[in-house]
Write a protein that binds this DNA or RNA. Structure first.
Lengths: 203, 203, 203, 203
DNA sequence: GATGAATGAGTCTTCATTCAT
DNA sequence: CATGAATGAAGACTCATTCAT
């Protein structure tokens, strides 16, 4: 499926991807039928199979494009910043913003975990993300700014905490991404302990 | 479906729950058919519907029983401990242990998030868990042991970070629950900043 | 299935017949399951198959007993009356009364017509009924009281008209059986033409 | 299920309706499976659900179209006739003819009565039919041609008697519709009493 | 006599995919 | 490119009936 697409074709493809993302996020992957998707766009079934080999491949495509888009956003955000802690912070903020604007993507990811056949797609993206974070964490450790534990743990912790906060606070409680990012960063940098120490200045 | 079950009946029901959990976790909810489940136990299709109203209700039942079991485990773990920080720590440790022993449950939860109809079941359990954690967090704040931010954020952060670490380190990287718990607790209590402060003594 | 039944056994059998009649009439034969019937009586499934060979045979039994009962009622009603017109009238009246009290039976009959396998049961009863009416009609013709057309047509007409009026007026419009019977008899005896004749005295 | 159908599509739909009508009439609604219907036409199972939402809805559709068709036939028959008695007569005759040609429809109606969920469909048609007849009856009463009883009773009586005669004589005994119509009309107009009156001229 | 449990063929229905036009 | 139509395997679920206890 490597069709040369006209401008109109690209537009169609985009419509399909977006509509499907919405339905998958709302109803789930399996409960959403191809028929439903094409009906939603008011086109025939042939259209779907013109642009995608299968429903499965469509889903994988959605994951791939989202991962790409998020990463591009993060990279733009940290561009030019040298301090690793600041880069982590910027990364978290940009992730929060992107997530707030793409809340559907979260559910798709959750689902992808649950079926063997989608794991490869997912892992590819996750590994890239972890590596990105780990680079900054390691840099921070090297410069004595971050506790010298396994960068791995820390990177995963950052991702996990961010993910949870995004989900709960932005999507469910409708807080602003910035506000949530502040809290996430504070927790990540300083933990939950009271700041009654000499130099404990939460950002 | 509130049948009075004989001993044998209870046993069957348990078999079905366990086998289904396994298959759902391995293959996903939708790809696992009722036929597959009953074949796995070598019984007729009617047996399934003798014990459960539907495949959907079976899944909900699995979630419910797991939530109950985890909570019981946590409560036993913190029983008798008074210090809120220690209670949080014990809670995290017992959760890690339980999760390590019930890794299937994690996938089921992930999946449940992705379909509207399972969300209510999930939320019920989550709310209870958050309330449990928040109680200790608030207690810690009151005693000046925990930074006085919204207990809500902190509780969610704790859950999110724990969940992520469990997933990645225990299930994917096969570390021991204790080791992972140590790291989780350190991160939660003190964040990622270096400990170059006067009184930075992680519990 | 010719069990020697104890008093208690006969009572059980009767309960099953009555409850099943009700359900069949309300919901239809097929949509009513054996499980539903035994649950309604709060007994196990074994009980059902102790008294009846099958669901089909139960249904046939219901038809048979109802036909018997109706016929007994009619015969008691016309006993001692000699005038054929009066006998027809009494037959109609008793049928109306019986029908009003056994409205369920009507639906069962309707249904039985629609499945080949129940037709024999039905026909047996119908033939008896037609013969009964025809005897009186023929008698009336012989005595010059009834128009000398085919007794067959007349008998069928009487049954059809009665049946329809019972259905519509007693069951759907809740008129009294007597009132409806008056109308049925008038229509049958004198048709719908105006009574502007010399000797038009409806009985 | 309001698909825009091509010519071929309409043809298919018609085939399905007709074949199903036949099978339902022969075997009964429940004993006839969707599989049987599609096999009978040599098409795949999906075809059925392309044209109908469900087996139930197909049945309802059959009833609806038959009612429509019968009514159209009756209206064409009485068109141009002014005398109410003659209109009733023409209505009866056309009904007999239509019924003789659509004997399957009778069984379907019988069955529909027996399940709650089909009653609404049935009633709708019945009400229309009754209203049609009542209009003529009332007209006849107004002109002094029909006995001044409740038009309701008379209309119902006409329908009931006609229905019964159709069933028994045309379908079971294979008389000609005309012959049966003659008898029905005679019975309806003049009842069963002897014609020994001054002006008793059955039409 | 009676019960809970089990059977498994059979039912309706869905849906990804293909194809003729 | 696009559509309506068709396919048919597969799925969830039902239910009359049987059986061990």
């Amino acid at each position: 499926m490597n069709r040369r697409l006209t401008t109109r074709g690209k537009e169609r493809r985009r419509q399909l991807l977006e509509f499907a993302t919405q339905r998958f996020a709302d109803n789930g992957y399996h409960p959403t039928s191809v028929a439903e998707i094409v009906q939603g766009l008011g086109v025939g079934k042939g259209v779907f199979y013109w642009y995608f080999d299968s429903k499965e491949q469509l889903f994988i495509e959605i994951l791939r494009e989202a991962q790409q888009d998020l990463r591009r956003t993060q990279q733009q955000a940290i561009e030019g910043e040298d301090d690793p802690i600041a880069r982590i912070e910027l990364g978290i903020r940009s992730t929060m913003l992107w997530s707030a604007e793409h809340e559907n993507y979260y559910k798709l990811t959750q689902f992808a975990i649950t079926e063997e056949r989608f794991l490869p797609s997912l892992r590819k993206g996750q590994e890239v993300a972890i590596k990105d974070v780990m680079r900054h964490v390691q840099d921070g450790i090297d410069r004595g700014l971050i506790r010298d534990t396994s960068a791995d743990y820390i990177a995963q912790g950052i991702l996990g905490l961010s993910t949870q906060l995004v989900r709960v606070f932005i999507h469910e409680k409708h807080r602003s991404p910035d506000e949530v990012a502040d809290e996430a960063i504070a927790l990540i940098l300083d933990g939950i302990h009271t700041g009654d120490r000499s130099a404990a200045a939460p950002i």
